[in-house]
Design a protein around this nucleic acid. Structure first.
Length: 529
DNA sequence: CCTGACTCGC
DNA sequence: ATGCGAGTCAGGT
């Protein structure tokens, strides 16, 4: 049956409609059918119209067609052990379901297509989101090779350290308990050992034992450092080292993530099953895990390319701030330059501490931070934080104006936009509740920046994918981590691919500051990054 | 099966 | 009380 439709699917002049059409592409691919040409995904169309709403078909059908489709549960049962597969469903029931599914998708597409046009979202839909679908499908299909032995070795070492830490903690605490239970840990620390007077509580009145809280208590009792060590080791083992090998597909022997294109409020992708966008890097022990993400063979290398400071560069672009733009045009170390200007010292006189504070301030700015937040983050008094912020805005007056402009636009339009016209609605921007309103104001500043960065890397991915195809390269794009792309490259293609990827990423969108890309290469992700 | 606390990434 | 995500575990239903 699939064969009869194959010629239609391969026609570049026929639009293919679907709800979550990446899934259909992948199913058809299993039957050797390559789908070509323009796509229309109702899920993604609705995501662009209102990213924070649900995008499942039942919801869309109810809202736009005033119709409740046959729930899939009536065919295959509820989720869980007893759920059947589509193959086992009576063919007459399946026919009704499938035809209705196609009909609802088509009817939705008529309505959503019109709305995209009316709301000036057709361009980002047609030129970015739809062309990205087959790119992501290819990346997911390709998968990444995992060195299982490397992880097994790490697992053995970490579990030893974990046992040792656990033993020492129980000795210091004078009893055993479930260390993975924050509640039990809190009772031991604050009721049994009584390490401080008035412990911080969570919103549900439990003792707070999170990392930030424990860091502040580190000097009070030697057990605290051990607990922090235990937490780190436990996280590495239970989230990465042990589960990852179990998620390898036995047929392909690769790890295949899913990239979700219709989840985030800002336009970023997200990654699940497994999430390969949060593999550890900051901590040395965690970073070792990246050694297990390897090139597909001895003749291939793992190649990584990431944007340098893309969000701050976008702040410089949007704000038009002359000082910040100049720093990027001269390819300066932006945190050092910021520190020099904010603390009024020569760039070469900037201390490590000053640079770190400037770095925190730069990130805080993108997120719309307050003096309070900055003081917490830097571990300094609020008055000092306020001085830094004042000095920051004196240094970069355009940034301050731009931030106010974002909030003004949001109040007027009830939404904010990225460079491609992608939008985020901000219904709370005029809320009477200052907490709720403050949140919307930070979104108004952050969403255009984070969202434009997402637009840019999506454009780069599409162009890179097309160039690979056009030039007949065997290199495969594997992973996207928000400002970074990773590839499996045959050694003989490395030179060409490095130039091509760098160029596609740097030239993805013209801005009034340059975008720069840093690349790395090695046998694995650890070496490449 | 759900929620909260926690911790990993950009 | 700085933005955006996902996974694990405990502990409750």
């Amino acid at each position: 049956l699939a064969g009869k439709f194959a010629p239609l699917f391969s026609r570049a002049d026929v639009m293919k409609y679907g709800q979550n059409i990446k899934f259909d592409l992948q199913v058809l691919r299993k039957y050797g059918i390559e789908v070509k040409g323009p796509l229309f995904d109702t899920m993604i169309a609705h995501y662009l119209l209102d990213p924070e709403q649900p995008h499942n078909m039942d919801h869309l059908s109810r809202v736009y067609l005033n119709y409740l489709p046959i729930p899939i549960e009536t065919l295959i049962g509820k989720k869980g052990r007893s759920q059947m597969t589509m193959r086992l469903v009576d063919v007459q029931l399946l026919k009704n379901y499938a035809c209705e599914d196609a009909d609802v998708t088509w009817k939705l597409s008529r309505i959503l297509s019109e709305k995209l046009k009316e709301e000036k979202l057709e361009n980002v839909f047609r030129e970015i989101e739809m062309p990205l679908v087959p790119v992501l499908a290819d990346m997911e299909f390709q998968g990444v090779k995992l060195d299982v032995n490397a992880l097994r070795e790490q697992s053995a070492i970490l579990k030893n350290e974990l046992q040792q830490a656990e033993k020492e903690i129980f000795t210091m605490a004078g009893s055993s308990f479930n260390l993975n239970s924050p509640r039990q840990l809190g009772e031991v620390l604050f009721e049994k050992l009584k390490i401080i007077e008035n412990p911080k509580l969570t919103k549900t009145k439990q003792y707070s034992t999170n990392e930030e809280t424990l860091q502040k208590l580190a000097g009070k009792h030697p057990v605290i450092d051990k607990i922090l060590e235990y937490r780190m080791l436990q996280k590495l083992v239970s989230t990465y080292v042990d589960p990852l090998p179990d998620q390898i597909n036995p047929l392909t022997r690769r790890l295949h993530t899913s990239f979700n294109q219709a989840i985030t409020a800002t336009g970023r992708l997200s990654s699940t099953n497994p999430n390969l966008q949060n593999i550890p890097i900051r901590d040395a022990k965690g970073r070792e895990i990246r050694k297990a993400f390897v090139a597909s063979s001895e003749n291939h290398v793992f190649f990584s390319a990431d944007y340098s400071q893309i969000e701050l560069r976008l702040m410089a672009h949007f704000s038009g701030d002359a000082i910040m733009q100049e720093a990027f045009r001269n390819n300066e170390d932006i945190h050092r330059t910021t520190a020099a200007k904010v603390f009024k010292v020569a760039p070469e006189e900037v201390s490590r501490e000053q640079r770190n504070k400037a770095k925190t301030a730069n990130f805080g700015i993108i997120y719309g931070i307050s003096a309070f937040g900055l003081s917490e983050r830097m571990g300094i008094p609020r008055s000092e934080a306020k001085q830094i912020i004042d000095s920051y805005f004196e240094t970069f007056p355009g940034v301050k104006d731009y931030m106010n402009q974002c909030i003004f636009t949001a109040r007027e339009k009830g939404e904010v936009y990225t460079l491609t016209g992608r939008r985020r609605k901000l219904p709370d921007i005029n809320s009477q509740n200052s907490v709720v309103r403050g949140n919307a104001e930070r979104n108004a500043i952050n969403a255009p920046i984070q969202g434009t960065a997402a637009d840019i890397i999506k454009i780069a991915m599409i162009n890179i994918h097309n160039e690979f195809l056009k030039r007949g390269l065997k290199t495969k794009m594997l992973l996207q981590v928000h400002d970074e792309l990773n590839f499996d490259v045959p050694k003989e293609e490395l030179e060409e691919v490095t130039a091509l990827v760098t160029s596609c990423m740097e030239q993805a969108m013209p801005l009034n500051v340059p975008l720069t890309v840093e690349t790395g290469v090695g046998r694995n992700w650890f070496e490449a990054h």
